[in-house]
Structures are given as C-alpha cells and as structure tokens.
Design a protein around this nucleic acid. Structure first.
Lengths: 107, 107
DNA sequence: TGCACATATGAGCAGTCGCTCATATGTGCG
DNA sequence: CGCACATATGAGCGACTGCTCATATGTGCA
C-alpha cells in the first residue's frame, strides 16, 4: 500500500474526538460491576444502598462506579428525601447491551 | 426495598457468564488504539504493517492489539504470502460503533 | 539452504483501575 | 440545633494495561 493511499484512507476515518469519546464510552461499559449496575437499572430505578444490596457490594464501591456512569451520561439521578435514585439516562445502553450480547452469543 | 425483593430482582438479571462476556467485549472496545484499528478495518482489509502505517504505530504495538481483537473474535485473518490480512469478523462491531456514536453525539 | 522480510511473542516499565477505609456533605426528624 | 442516616469523595494499595525493545517464528526467493 502506498503512502498516498494512507492519506486517502485516513481522510475517511473517525475524527480523534469521536474515537476518544467512543472508546471512553466502551471503557465505562467494560467492567463487570458497571455492567451489573446497568443491567439492574435497565429493569428498575434504584437507590444506592439497594443497588449495593442487590449486587452484594459496599455502598461506597457502588457510589464510586455511579459517579463514572453519571459523568458518562449513562445514568441520571433523582433525589427523594435522603435517598438518590438512579436510572438509565437513555435507551442506547439497552441497545448496546443487546448488540453486545448478540456478538457474545455467537462464540 | 426488602431483601425478599432483592431475590426476585436478582433472578431476572443477566447470568454471571453473560455479564463477564459482555464486559470483556466492551473492555476490548474501550481503547482508542483498538477503536482506530477497527474503524480502519470497517473500511478495508489490511495487513499489519499497513495498519501501523495508517495509524502511526509500530508493527509490534499493532500486532499486540490485534491478538486481543483476534481472541475476542472481533477480527479474522487471511494469510497471503508473508503478509497477514486482517478484517472485521462480524457485523455486530459496526452496529456497536453506530450505536455508541449515537450515544456520544447527544452529549 | 541461507538471508531478508512480515508478523508474533515475552519481559518489563509507567500509567491506570477498582476496591477499601476514613471522612465529608447533605437531608429529615426529634 | 443536633443526631442518625444516605450518599459522595479522597487517599492509597494491589492488580492490570499498553507500550517498547529484544527475540522468536514463519514465509518467499536467490
């Protein structure tokens, strides 16, 4: 392949910011704890201590992970008294899970 | 939430192996170098040195990443003489990228 | 066969990750 | 207000990641 072709191919690739944002999103999804959290939240809204209860983790560990998920706009929060309820922020995550599972299941 | 409800919710969640496989797949996608490699391969089949040329990386670095992608069944190989050509192994990756970009673009 | 090229692999190092533990912030209620 | 509860945050530790550099494996050709 000529270096001239490198240039032509490069011009059609994803931009650096897109690549970074995409990788960042997948990185957040690439951890069993966060997958489990998102799986739970795809079924019901839940507060931190209940998430911890369901998943068998400390509230602190869950809170740390939720911060990441919040920063990535994967979950949103709603305060009700002392508790803060978490829910999925958009439907793309469910789509990503479904598509990811399809890939996984054909191994 | 009662501990009885924990049990009910838990029963409907993804199995541990599914969670592990899903997280593993996303983890592989969660790196800019691998995203760039897959982006290139979504447009054309390419051998290691040309991938390195396009991406401005050493052939060794590319080869290390390709091994991961191979193990995860995200790319497949075809030998032609001394060169080994890499291509996407299935269409789900393109779908995952598209879905991921949709999420990213609404930030 | 022997040499050059293409790719793969292993060791090792700097940077990152996910947890725990301690502590801070924020809210409701007496 | 003052205390208990719910959540968030920071430091720090062991485990892991992605690269480089050196080396091994595999292929084509004289």
């Amino acid at each position: 392949m000529s270096s001239r072709s490198y240039v032509r191919l490069s011009a059609s690739l994803l931009s650096d910011p897109s690549v970074a944002a995409l990788a960042e999103t997948f990185k957040v999804l690439g951890d069993t704890t966060r997958v489990r959290i998102l799986d739970v939240l795809s079924r019901t809204e839940l507060c931190v201590q209940d998430l911890a209860g369901v998943l068998g983790l400390t509230p602190s560990a869950v809170s740390h992970q939720l911060r990441l998920l919040r920063t990535s706009r994967l979950v949103r929060t709603r305060r009700d008294g002392r508790q803060i309820f978490y829910a999925l922020d958009d439907d793309h995550i469910v789509g990503l899970f479904r598509q990811g599972l399809e890939h996984v299941q054909e191994l």
